[in-house]
Computed example of a mutant assay.
Amino acid sequence: MGSQMTEMLKGTLEGIVLAVLAARPAYGYEITAQLRDQGFSDLVEGTVYALLVRVEQKGLVDVAKVPSEKGPPRKVYTLNAQGREQLEEFWRTWSFLAERIDQLRTHDTEGGS
């Protein structure tokens, strides 16, 4: 990923992780693996774990410790009602920005200045 992609991802990663959790509860490594499978190949596991700590502190997820076959119990994150509200706000903001950016791009390709 280029530096521009990295910077844009920093601003949207919370919403992306909340969207993953909206589909089903997951633990940190599962989230990282799913995002990598979806093309976020340079995503560092530590980045996701740090973000999960923040969304837990904000009260956007519920956390359950689930026994693991290997090692200590895993923290499984489930999106709660407050997290769903935050995700809805993320999608509203995303739609607004995407529309404006698309207008700028369309205006630019039409020869506007």
Results as ranks from 00 to 15, higher is better:
residue 103 Q to Y: 08
residue 4 Q to T: 14
residue 25 P to S: 06
residue 92 R to H: 14
residue 9 L to G: 04
residue 110 E to F: 02
residue 22 A to D: 13
residue 77 Y to G: 04
residue 26 A to Y: 01
residue 83 G to R: 04
residue 94 W to M: 07
residue 1 M to D: 12
residue 11 G to W: 00
residue 37 D to Q: 07
residue 29 Y to K: 14
residue 106 T to W: 03
residue 9 L to K: 11
residue 27 Y to N: 11
residue 78 T to E: 13
residue 109 T to L: 05
residue 66 V to M: 12
residue 104 L to P: 00
residue 76 V to A: 09
residue 62 D to W: 09
residue 106 T to Y: 02
residue 100 R to Q: 15
residue 72 P to I: 09
residue 57 Q to S: 09
residue 11 G to L: 02
residue 58 K to W: 05
residue 88 E to I: 13
residue 73 P to N: 07
residue 55 V to K: 02
residue 25 P to M: 03
residue 31 I to E: 02
residue 27 Y to C: 05
residue 51 L to I: 12
residue 15 G to P: 08
residue 37 D to C: 02
residue 109 T to R: 10
residue 22 A to V: 06
residue 103 Q to N: 09
residue 37 D to S: 07
residue 81 A to L: 14
residue 26 A to L: 03
residue 24 R to C: 04
residue 97 L to Y: 12
residue 82 Q to V: 09
residue 69 E to A: 02
residue 74 R to K: 15
residue 29 Y to S: 08
residue 84 R to S: 13
residue 77 Y to E: 07
residue 73 P to F: 11
residue 41 S to Y: 00
residue 21 L to R: 12
residue 21 L to D: 06
residue 104 L to A: 03
residue 83 G to Y: 05
residue 88 E to S: 14
residue 68 S to L: 03
residue 54 R to S: 09
residue 51 L to F: 09
residue 13 L to V: 14
residue 62 D to Y: 07
residue 51 L to K: 11
residue 93 T to S: 11
residue 2 G to D: 14
residue 65 K to A: 12
residue 104 L to R: 04
residue 78 T to F: 10
residue 69 E to D: 04
residue 38 Q to F: 00
residue 90 F to L: 14
residue 48 V to S: 01
residue 106 T to V: 03
residue 9 L to Y: 05
residue 106 T to K: 07
residue 37 D to W: 01
residue 60 L to D: 07
residue 66 V to L: 10
residue 8 M to D: 00
residue 26 A to G: 03
residue 64 A to I: 11
residue 52 L to M: 13
residue 14 E to N: 11
residue 81 A to M: 12
residue 86 Q to M: 15
residue 98 A to W: 00
residue 12 T to Q: 10
residue 4 Q to M: 15
residue 29 Y to V: 13
residue 23 A to D: 10
residue 32 T to K: 01
residue 77 Y to M: 06
residue 10 K to Q: 02
residue 27 Y to F: 11
residue 14 E to P: 10
residue 107 H to S: 11
residue 76 V to R: 14
residue 70 K to W: 02
residue 69 E to G: 05
residue 48 V to M: 01
residue 108 D to M: 09
residue 27 Y to M: 04
residue 3 S to M: 15
residue 17 V to S: 08
residue 39 G to H: 05
residue 101 I to Y: 05
residue 14 E to W: 03
residue 3 S to K: 15
residue 92 R to E: 13
residue 56 E to Q: 07
residue 17 V to C: 07
residue 33 A to Y: 08
residue 17 V to H: 06
